[in-house]
Amino acid sequence: MVLEKEGTFRIGDKELYTKSWLPDGLTKAKLVFIHGFSDHVNRYYGFFPFLAERGIAVHGFDQRGWGRSVAKPAEKGLTGPTTRVLDDMAAFIRPHLPSYPSDPPVFVMGHSMGGGQVLTLMSDPAYAKDIVSRVRGFLLEAPFIDFAPEERPWTLKVIAGRLASHVLPRFHLSNRIPPENLSRDPEVVRSLDADPLVHDTGTLEGLAGLLDRTAALASGSIRPPSDAVRAIWVGHGTADKATSFSATKKWFDQCATDISDRTFKAYEGYYHQLHADKGREEFYEDVAAWILERAEPTAIAPLDAKL
């Protein structure tokens, strides 16, 4: 049995929607999850209950501008700049971090845009000591490091958007990704089309911040510090039509080499949403096994071991 709990958490003047999937028994580990673009935490199907049934408590929130955290149409896609995005993530992660060695270890996972955000947080020295070094492991599902060829925008459009973001930061811009490019499961495709919370709307400021983060990740100019990151798992579908499999593999091969505990899993023929694609059960099993292996008491290093 899995216990589901909804709530909110406040950061500044904004309340964000939260949801947790809790084991009905011993909690072996905690997973803090960061969702992707035009997404929300209630779109991950059986993934979170599957983890909770195995003793992994999952905690997620609808990011600013997305899902049930949108109170009015003007707030759609209103994420703010990268500094605000990272502050929101950090504010949500901190209360879940272990205070004592006997507390369950905490893992942080991001999908797509959320994966790029997690990588950016991991690589920011401002969060190295109080967050990154206290997280037992980071997981990335099809992280947004670069566009897949099907979604790559024209260069002039990108330049114009960046310039306009300084003048009209809250201007709304639709950026629809065809649902059939996200999953091979027809039921998922229909569900995406019918979901009113999947609004595909960003603001110029938010989209410019997203592009800046991906450019920094793709170029290798920022990378996670090996003295703070204990472990990393990356999974990506080889047939992803939203984010680039090759860019993710390149990043892993070039920027994660100093992390001793690192795993890359290529899902042959899978599309973007590994958690909602045909054959998703393999992905579920892989994530659960990786977390639980590192949740064993003998695998948990002291919190200050790498400080």
Rank of each mutant, 00 (worst) to 15 (best):
F9P: 06
R10K: 13
E15D: 15
L22G: 05
A29K: 11
K30A: 10
L31D: 09
F47S: 01
F47K: 04
A52I: 05
E53W: 02
R54K: 15
I56L: 10
G65H: 12
G65A: 09
K72E: 14
T79F: 00
P81Q: 07
P81R: 09
T82V: 14
T83W: 09
S102Q: 12
V106S: 02
F107T: 06
S112G: 06
S112D: 02
G115F: 07
Q117M: 07
M122Y: 05
A126D: 12
D130T: 10
A142G: 08
F144N: 14
I159V: 15
G161W: 14
S165A: 14
R176C: 06
I177S: 02
P179D: 09
S183P: 03
P186I: 07
P186K: 04
V189E: 10
P196A: 14
V198C: 07
V198R: 04
V198E: 04
G209T: 03
D212A: 12
L217W: 12
R223V: 09
R230V: 02
H236D: 02
T238K: 01
T243P: 05
T248A: 11
W251I: 06
D253T: 04
Q254T: 14
T257C: 01
E268Q: 12
G269D: 08
A276D: 11
E281C: 00
Y284F: 15
L292K: 08
E296R: 14
P297C: 11
